[in-house]
Amino acid sequence: MKLTINIIVLFTLCFLLVQCQKKEMVIFPTVIVPAGDGFELLSEYNFFKGKLSDLNPNIESGVMPYDLIMPLFSDYALKKRFIYVPEGGSIPFDTSAVLELPIGSILIKHFYFKNVDGSDQYIETRLMIRKIDGWFPEIYKWDEDHSEARRTIIGGIVNITASIKGENVMFPYSIPNQNQCKNCHSYNGKINPIGPTIHNLNKDYEYASGKDNQLTRWEIVGILEKTPSTNIPKWTTINDENTSLHERARAYLAINCSSCHRREGSAANSGLYLEYDNQDSLSLGFWKTPIAAGGGSGGFPYVINPGIASESILLYRMRAEEVDERMPEIGRVLLHEEGIELIRNWIDEM
């Protein structure tokens, strides 16, 4: 009897040992958060496992893919988003503002286009790193062969040929410099993320392990504190006909304009504030006269001339192609046809 127990114990020990050794062999490198400036190479963070260009998230070390309901339009760039929250950290559930991520968190946003032959054309990967003294942006520009992405602080304009909605389009794409990152991410002079709000995350995502609501999944993996089971706000997509034109337009303006056009943002001096919950008609642009628009007014008297989209500065600037007239001021060269259509209908139907 004693012998059998001993043998069992021995066997179990051996088994555990083998298991441990096995685990050690396939252990994934932990994500590294730089203390000072960002690393020179994107690969140094260990966000991805295997070949870098596969962008296969290092889930085992806390990198999760995610998506937004209403994304920012960036010249039809395709985007992949990932979030890294360090072990033990979690995000308080808060619907009143952008989520407060714990120190050491990183938001990763990859920008790419499709080539005519259907292959990918990687452009840049942007990071927002939450350090002790706030958020810091970093930008990595991809090598042409997609083998690595390298840190740039000045960005630059790259001439791109991409297949967009079945058409071959050539245009100058702007990789922002660090100041331009802040221009849009400015909140009272400090840098803050824009996308990750409860409203904008409340959707299903196709995880490798199956489909799940993102908030639910974040709670399960322990990066989001307990979510209430009911009444979780949710934004709508640009083309969801089941939701009102108003809801869609306001969510669109919120994500595409209000990071600057709010009292705490870079365009505070314009007096035009387009946050989702702003209910003040003047600062929303209704019968609001232009201030410093210059040619950007298009010769029209009001930002929003209710019922007449074609005579509203808001639509004019979305349709403008001149450098000094187009909006958003940074990150848009091409026209966002679907967005223009949405805002046109919204104003016309007022």
């Binding site: 304009i157 100058p172 702007s174 100041n179 331009q180 802040k182 221009n183 400015s186 002079g189 870079s266 450098v323 000094d324 001021e329 940074i330 060269v333």
Partner: peptide
């Protein structure tokens, strides 16, 4: 020859 940005020179904050 400006292709991007709403201002020539900008200083903020």
């Amino acid at each position: 020859g400006q292709l991007a940005g709403g201002d020539g020179v900008l200083v903020s904050n």
